[in-house]
Nucleic acid binder design. Structure first.
Lengths: 263, 263
DNA sequence: ACAAAAGTGTTTAGACTACACCCATGC
DNA sequence: GCATGGGTGTAGTCTAAACACTTTTGT
């Protein structure tokens, strides 16, 4: 591309990973996210978002998925680019740094799986310590984006298993949006959207009428990202690092090399 | 930040610039955007989005505003980060390149101002030639984002002057959304939003009732970008390169250095 | 029987659409 | 006067919120 060399501008990819977790067994679940303890200056000892440099032959979303895998051992249920941060002052006492940040949703059971590690810990999303760099602001923005997207998109199932009840799905919405939803109206809305398919099974064992299990309808595109078609949504069979296109669902993703060195 | 060096990954910033322009004097205006002719390989001779490398002490949005200034001679009426493109294959026969792309709105009269230049030309947004790199896809995505944002945000005034009639404002919406709007209902909607302030002046000279002039209400935040507060919206007095925070209005902008080299 | 959650039905308020209609100006 | 767009009024449609009510299980 013959664009000017990036001089001393380093490029990194970080990921904000959300999962639902209930502190007490029967308590309402809330949003949690994993942070990693920094071992170098600046901000040594502080908690920070998982991330690191981009590998030479790796796409941006692939790097984010790798962050996720290395931090939680999981594949993303949903993954979308959040923003590129490049303020000249964002990295004190270190060189200039531009970070492309992704956000992801994973299944709830991820939270306990990795809590044994001492350098990785899950925190409640609305009760974070003071993080390294501008990561507090990043998480705030990721939360804002998640809440917005939850209202007009159909990504909640990414925080659940293959099948789920409408109650479970509603709990995801309630936890993210932090407000109770009418079960009756919620049912009608998701049924009208066509995003779910009823299975034949029900869940017995509760001391009440057994709820039906639903499955996500893959025929429906849940993310309205326009012309973009990002990637490792669900387990994409073997398309390892096929695409780095931005997520076409929300106004944030699109893939294009905009090099222009003339002018 | 002690993150791995970016090896050979170059970083560039490009900008998709939109303005309204009517081919014929009395024809309906349509979206146009300026492109720049490449003078180097790859894609020498092809049209491409204005852009270039990021300067060492320059914020991302400042670089986008500089693109805009150098291409059109104007300051952005609205500027927002679009997406970061980093597919490994996006730059044939050149090194790895990651581009952070912005999109902008400018006043309509910009179109004719620069059409004399031979290396910069304005094109109708829905009738572009085959561009360099993946720039066709980028423009498609920028258009999709603009159209989405136009429906739930109040950015249309960025394509007009300081004062404007409701007809002019409606024409912006009609050109972007490509469908006619009911003048009566349009009026009620914008009046109910509180985004506009009526002035005392009217426009005489038309062969019909003189329409009232309106001004944008700065007290209302028109861009719902959450916790982000980007920047060079209107002429920000002298805040040259103050902020590089992502635009908090739409689900795309947030500023944060996500360096993480441990793990 | 009773509690509790699943699931259905109904009423109402607000938002948006369509379109009829009046107003003010230039010619 | 009449054409043209500015501006107001109003009835019909659609959606979503609120909430009463019925169903089905476990204990």
């Amino acid at each position: 591309m013959a664009a000017g060399k990036s001089e001393d501008i380093a490029l990194a990819v970080s990921t904000v990973i959300f999962a639902l977790h209930a502190e007490a067994p029967q308590a309402r679940p809330s949003l949690h996210l994993p942070l990693v303890r920094r071992i170098r200056e600046p901000f040594a000892g502080r908690w920070a978002l998982p991330g690191g440099p981009l590998l030479p032959q790796e796409g941006l979303s692939a790097a984010a998925a790798r962050n996720l895998q290395q931090t939680t051992g999981l594949r993303p249920g949903y993954l979308e680019q959040l923003y590129a941060f490049g303020d000249p002052d964002r990295s004190p006492s270190a060189g200039r740094m531009v970070s492309v940040v992704y956000w992801a949703l994973v299944h709830a059971d991820a939270v306990t799986d990795t809590s044994s590690d001492d350098n990785v810990r899950w925190f409640a999303a609305d009760d974070l310590p003071s993080l390294a760099f501008d990561h507090n602001l990043i998480v705030e923005y990721a939360l804002w984006r998640l809440r917005n997207k939850m209202e007009y998109s159909r990504i909640a199932h990414a925080m659940l298993g293959e099948t789920f009840t409408l109650s479970e799905l509603r709990q995801v919405y309630e936890a993210v949006l932090r407000k109770p939803l009418d079960p009756a109206n919620f049912r009608r809305q998701v049924e009208a959207s066509g995003a779910l398919v009823a299975t034949d099974s029900v869940v017995t064992g509760g001391r009440h009428r057994p709820p039906r299990l639903y499955r996500y309808n893959d025929a429906v595109d849940m993310t309205d990202n326009g012309p973009l078609t990002d990637i490792p949504q669900h387990p994409p069979p073997h398309a390892a690092d096929s695409a780095d296109l931005p997520d076409p669902t929300d106004p944030t993703a699109l893939n294009d090399p905009t090099d222009r060195s003339n002018l």
